[in-house]
């Protein structure tokens, strides 16, 4: 999976592209784990190039959010979520566990 991370003063930005399903959800989790294991818990996930995400991907986001929010040390914020992905996320009630921003600037600025 191709990914890009950008370090900001107050948070880290991660961007991946394409589809997230059972085949590459573990790779996505590794990317997030690299950050959280380095003590970075303020993360923005730029989903502008994600066109499909199954529940395997959502659980990665949920597990990462749990790590980030533990001891109130941070947050995983989502940016530019495709309306279809967001619709499905909200349908199972998972959308409520995330702060979702229309653009990356707003998400980064929230920290």
């Amino acid at each position: 999976m191709e990914f890009k991370t950008t370090e900001y003063k107050r948070c880290d930005l991660i961007k991946t592209s394409g589809r997230i399903d059972g085949s590459n959800a573990p790779q996505l989790e590794e990317i997030f784990n690299t950050l959280t294991e380095a003590g970075k818990f303020k993360i923005v996930y730029n989903m502008s190039d994600i066109n499909f995400m199954s529940s395997a991907g959502w659980w990665v986001l949920i597990r990462t959010q749990k790590k980030c929010r533990r001891y109130k040390r941070g947050e995983l914020a989502l940016a530019c979520v495709d309306p279809k992905i967001r619709g499905a996320l909200d349908l199972v009630g998972m959308g409520s566990y995330f702060k979702i921003f229309e653009d990356v600037t707003a998400a980064v600025g929230s920290f």
């Binding site: 199954s54 529940s55 949920i62 929010r69 499905a88 349908l91 009630g93 409520s96 566990y97």
Partner: peptide, 19 residues
């Protein structure tokens, strides 16, 4: 899947069939 469960208590599974 439990809706509105506390994040800490959220466990994976069941979402696929529900979806």
């Amino acid at each position: 899947p439990k809706s509105k469960a506390n994040l800490k208590n959220l466990k994976s599974g069941g979402a696929g069939l529900y979806l």
